[in-house]
Nucleic acid binder design. Structure first.
Length: 128
DNA sequence: CTTTTGACAGCGT
DNA sequence: CACGCTGCCAAAA
């Protein structure tokens, strides 16, 4: 994963409004590049200066240690929970047109640099 | 170059 | 609802 990919993930994460969340897969799809694991790798390298607790697994959980630190934030932001984990369907951020434009712009900064052959966007049987 | 690894996802049991 | 397996993809070993 390139450094700019990680940067894009981090920047995108900062656009998630308080009270909402996105899954790793969502972010990968919004960026139009990489997959859930790539996003996870990028998050692992984040400096903590971003709302990392709003980026979670598709099932609304996070690795144990992180989840413990995230819960207070979830409560603070009134993110819908159930059985201690986030109810993703209810909490998932739905970007409005304005936000969408920004994210799209953000994504374009990635897939552009000297694209030699980025013809076949990797599909991985998941849609939003 | 091959193998292992990891802030993942989906499906079956 | 909780595990366990399998598929995935790129980076690191």
């Amino acid at each position: 994963m390139s450094a700019d990919y990680a940067l894009a993930v981090h920047r995108l994460a900062r656009h998630i409004p308080a009270g909402s969340v996105l899954t790793y897969g969502d972010i990968a799809e919004l960026l139009g590049l990489g997959g859930p694991r790539q996003v996870g790798a990028a998050m692992a390298r984040s400096d903590g200066a971003l709302p990392w607790w709003r980026v979670l697994r598709a099932d609304g959980t996070l690795p144990a240690d992180l989840q413990a630190r995230a819960t207070p934030h979830w409560v603070e932001e009134s993110i819908p929970l159930r059985h201690g984990r986030v109810r993703v369907p209810a909490a998932r951020w739905q970007p409005d047109e304005e936000a969408f434009a920004i994210l799209d712009e953000l994504a374009s900064t990635l897939a552009s640099p000297v694209v030699v052959e980025e013809t076949a966007p990797k599909r991985r049987g998941r849609m939003l």
